[in-house]
């Protein structure tokens, strides 16, 4: 039985965990400002955070929020924890930064620290490093949040080579951003802080649309 044990949603400069609002910034705060405030609110020290591009920061924070008050990391075999993430814009915002650094031949300074983030799955790598998760990876690109794609593939990977999964949507585009992360386990978790919702397309669509 595959269960969703926790989820977090970040959009419009606010964060909710399992449908309950837990943090917000002013509506007109920019994305970098919001991310910085959200990071501070978590009271963690993870210097690598400041090196990440916006998409990785967003995915990192949303996952931290989803994991809060769960025993997901301590109770699961992390070699069998899959990370399945998707979005619409791939790494387009960082792609534009890199392109900008090479457009002008008289001011030509491509930066390795920017270029490395021009792959969307680097956000998966950042989560893997943060939590020492070494299981299956997949980064999909779809026009919109696609519950069917995510749920269907997560089920397949849980069937084949994983016992838990970090899944979701981490999107940063020109005008909008959004992250939605849900944690899935196959075993029956006894932790009282977690929720239990069966992993299926209907449930994921519901909790995604909830806030």
């Amino acid at each position: 039985m595959n269960n969703i044990i926790s989820y977090a949603h970040i959009k419009n400069n606010s964060v909710s965990i399992n449908g309950t609002p837990v943090f917000s910034s002013e509506k007109n705060a920019t994305l970098p400002e919001f991310l910085s405030e959200a990071y501070k609110s978590m009271e963690i020290s993870y210097p690598k955070f400041h090196k990440m591009d916006l998409q990785c920061k967003l995915g990192f924070l949303c996952t931290e929020f989803a994991l809060q008050n769960t025993a997901f990391i301590s109770e699961n075999d992390l070699t069998k924890t899959a990370i399945v993430i998707s979005n619409s814009a791939s790494s387009l915002q960082t792609d534009k930064l890199h392109q900008h650094s090479i457009d002008d031949k008289t001011n030509y300074f491509p930066s390795p620290a920017v270029f490395v983030y021009t792959l969307p799955n680097i956000s998966i790598g950042e989560l893997a490093i943060r939590h020492k998760v070494t299981g299956e990876n997949a980064f999909f690109v779809s026009k919109k949040f696609d519950a069917h794609l995510l749920v269907n593939y997560t089920e397949l990977v849980l069937h084949d080579n994983a016992s838990s999964a970090i899944c979701g949507w981490v999107e940063v585009d020109d005008t909008a951003y959004e992250a939605f992360i849900f944690l899935v386990e196959t075993k029956n978790n006894t932790n009282k802080n977690t929720i239990f919702k069966p992993l299926n397309q209907l449930v994921v669509t519901q909790i995604y649309n909830q806030t």
Partner: peptide
């Protein structure tokens, strides 16, 4: 069907084949 797009750095091609296998084995 809408194509499935995979962008997973330099393992994308091989991972796509592995994912294809999983889709077929599931009967989808």
């Amino acid at each position: 069907h809408t194509p499935v797009v995979l962008s997973n750095a330099c393992i994308s091609g091989l991972l796509a084949i592995i994912i294809a296998k999983r889709y077929i084995e599931s009967g989808a």
